[in-house]
């Protein structure tokens, strides 16, 4: 194994490709669930809605202090048991590894995104709220059209950075026996013994995707620097 042989990579391309697609799909789903839920969680805290705000604060604190891999385990084993109890007959209801991954990643990311958005909400200039009041805009319209769009713009570089981490974290689904890009590569590597080639290709794929996203972060930073100056 002293010369590199990439033909093995081309042969196993379809399998790698399906692994990559799974990583991307999981990232996209977790992003959407995480952003929608995270925004709601941030707003509940922002409006100090009694009881719910405290519960959410606790939820966010817990999730953020536990490694993702542990949360994945929990969900995989605990949620079926809880569902079983809820359904009445007490027998665990398995929800499957794929659903577990999507739901867990979404809930996990929601905690992180909600913190980013919560901080962003506090940073919105008081004058923006006053202008909305003076124009008789409702609270809903104020947040929907003025406050949240500004928060999302200002926070978009941090949100995207968090999403890059999320993309890399998708490799943890191996604990659920799911196959993402890294999982596909390591399975192939063990079969054909071409570890170096496989891991090189995978590293390049991660690098390409993450650095493309980082470029977007830089562009967003620049683009919204103007808008935040006032």
């Amino acid at each position: 194994m002293n010369t590199l042989d990439f033909s093995i990579v081309t042969q196993s391309w379809p399998y790698l490709w399906s692994g990559l697609l799974f990583s991307l799909a999981l990232t996209a789903a977790a992003f959407v669930i995480g952003m929608v839920l995270g925004t709601c969680l941030a707003l509940v805290q922002h409006f100090e809605i009694p009881v719910f705000a405290q519960i959410i604060r606790g939820y966010v604190a817990v999730i953020r202090s536990i490694p993702l891999i542990l949360v994945l385990f929990w969900f995989f084993f605990l949620v079926p048991i809880v569902l079983g109890h809820l359904s009445g007959n007490g027998r665990p209801i398995p929800i499957g590894a794929t659903y577990t991954a999507f739901i867990t990643f979404g809930l996990f990311e929601a905690a992180y995104y909600s913190e980013i958005i919560r901080v962003g909400l506090r940073a919105v200039n008081k004058g923006q709220f006053e202008a909305c009041q003076a124009l008789a805009l409702s609270t809903y319209d104020t947040y929907r059209h003025i406050v949240l769009p500004q928060v999302l713009r200002v926070a978009s570089p941090i949100i995207l950075s968090q999403t890059i981490i999320l993309f890399q974290d998708t490799s943890l689904v191996y604990v659920l026996s799911l196959t993402d890009l890294l999982g596909a590569a390591s399975k192939l590597a063990q079969l054909n013994g071409r570890l170096v080639e496989m891991y090189l290709v995978v590293a390049v794929a991660y690098l390409a995707i993450s650095s493309a996203a980082s470029q977007c972060v830089a562009v967003l930073r620049k683009r919204y620097a103007l808008a935040t100056s006032r």
Binding site: G127, Q128, A131, I146, P149, R153, A227
Partner: peptide, 9 residues
């Protein structure tokens, strides 16, 4: 307002 408070976005 003194500080305009236009919507920057």
């Amino acid at each position: 307002f003194q500080s305009f408070n236009l919507f920057p976005h």
